[in-house]
């Protein structure tokens, strides 16, 4: 036997052994494929599992809904703060029964002029 057997020799030796499929096996396979001799619900099962996207749809939808609600909540305008329109300070002199109320308004002068 040749000790220095080459890769190509191995390929040739292996490929020289080429066998035909026994006709009865070939016929049996064809028969099983062509006939309905397949397990019951064969294609139904395949169809159910054929689209991996479908089973993730509910999860995607709920995640999308949560994200949308969160974004809406974040973007909702906070109630506008009204600018200070007046400053009111009260002094009370109890012993003289006097109460002084000092009110400062932005348009104080304007209103006085009008009066």
């Amino acid at each position: 036997m040749n000790k220095k057997i080459k890769d190509e020799d191995i390929k040739v030796i292996l490929n020289s052994m080429d066998f035909d499929i026994p006709s009865e096996i070939d016929a049996k396979v064809n028969e099983m494929i062509y006939s309905e001799n397949l397990p019951a619900g064969f294609f139904k099962k395949l169809l159910r599992t054929s689209n991996p996207f479908i089973k993730w749809v509910p999860a995607f939808a709920s995640i999308l809904l949560l994200i949308t609600l969160g974004l809406i909540q974040l973007n909702r305008n906070a109630p506008e703060r009204k600018p200070l329109s007046e400053i009111k300070i009260e002094y009370e002199l109890k012993d003289k029964n006097i109460k002084i109320i000092w009110v400062k308004k932005e348009n104080f002068l304007l209103r006085r002029l009008k009066k």
Binding site: I21, P22, V29, M32, I33, F42, L46, S50
Partner: peptide, 18 residues
Amino acid sequence: SNDIYQNTALRAFKYFRK
């Protein structure tokens, strides 16, 4: 090998849609 070939062919046919 005949059984294995048969199983392979049928399995390939079964999952061919994928």
